[in-house]
Design a protein around this nucleic acid. Structure first.
Length: 112
DNA sequence: CCGATGACCATTT
DNA sequence: AAAATGGCCATCG
């Protein structure tokens, strides 16, 4: 039914746009939400392709353990951390502190 | 058109 | 415990 999406990459972007300020989610969580648990890699690829797009808060996507693995794809390698800190998070050694507290899991938050 | 190339993660060896 | 592996899609040259 609702085939309002053309491809997986676009689906990823749609989910990322829903991440609230001050929260983060993971590549794996997005992949699972899209029914493709084994495609967490592709989530990263999608964001890489989307970095040019605006209105996609790509900085709110980190890896499983909270590492800012995508930081080198921003204008400068510190921008991802700065954006997250500006939203109230604490980053130490490229890792989000107390990630569980801020984790926004679409599988839970968007459950319909 | 075809192949190389990328922000991951769970499982197996 | 650390390293290798399998899974998966779109874009670019």
């Amino acid at each position: 039914m609702h085939k309002n999406s053309t491809n997986f990459f676009d689906d990823v972007l749609d989910v990322v746009r829903l991440i609230p300020r001050g929260r983060v989610t993971t590549y794996g969580a997005i992949a699972r939400y899209l029914g493709a648990a084994k495609s967490s890699r592709l989530v990263g690829y999608a964001l890489n392709a989307a970095i040019q797009h605006d209105n996609v808060p790509a900085h709110r996507v980190v890896n499983r353990i909270g590492l800012l693995t995508g930081r080198f794809h921003f204008a400068n390698p510190n921008l991802m951390q700065e954006l997250l800190e500006a939203e109230g998070l604490t980053i130490i050694d490229n890792q989000v502190e107390h990630m569980e507290r801020f984790l926004w899991d679409p599988n839970l938050e968007l459950a319909c």
